[in-house]
Amino acid sequence: MSMSSLLILTLIGLFLSVRGFQAFQTQGLGFITKVDWTAGVDGGKDSFGLGAMIIGTLVISAIALVIGVPLSVLTALFLTFYAPERIKKALVTLVDLMASFPSILFGLWGFIVLMPMAEYWAKLIHKYVGWIPLFKMPSPAYTRSPFIAGVVLAIMIIPIVTSVSREIFGQTPLDRIQAAYALGATRWAMIKAVVLPFGASGVVGGAMLGLGRALGETVAVYSVLNIVFKVNFQVLYGFGGNIASMIVGKWGEASLSESKALLAAGFVLFVMTLLVNLLANFIVRRTVKTGK
């Protein structure tokens, strides 16, 4: 089972790198560092640089994590330590089930319900902390931005991060929990002293799994962002994009050389996702082993 998935993974990696090889060859290191993406027309010169999209991918994913992980941790703590026994089992089953759903289902809900709200939040953020360069706003157009894409992504990763965190919190050794209570700790004090130190690396592992999903998210980002090849750190401002959505956006009308470059972009995403998942695996495994 694991052998066959490894084989498929290797084949995909090989396919992407072989097909995209030409792009790496002609563009060199610039393929990763340059920020412009122009397909040469009528014998003109191609220039394919993925820099802006790599940064966009990281920025949007980071926003998703900053919003999604704290909410997930609080939800997991609620499920483990606060939810009434009667409904706990049902809630846990529900969350675990949600974690296995395709995240686009939550994304759809995010578009319809959350986006109008996120617009309002963006305005608030700009109003109160707009002096921070990160939240600068060159023009008052709040509907499409990396921030809103990040919010939608956050909703999409919350179930998986919650599920993993809950699993870890539930394994907190009972004798430590009792030790804290026996010393006169309130529930929250016990959680801070015992559960969070115990579960921290597990939460990081869960967040990495969420990040793996966020990195590859396509439709959600494509629907809320104008794909523009320019590095954008002003997260409330309306352009950006990530690699996955960029590939989908360009694929339809790509020339032969451009489609090779898109496959090469796919390879870059492949490597990024692989690294994140390996890291997650490593962290989660270390948690289970040391029990700390």
Partner: peptide, 16 residues
């Protein structure tokens, strides 16, 4: 529980 302390069967210091 502050006035009535407890020591358990298995030593359970906080490892962190």
């Amino acid at each position: 529980r502050l006035q009535i302390g407890m020591v358990f069967q298995k030593p359970n210091p906080f490892p962190s």
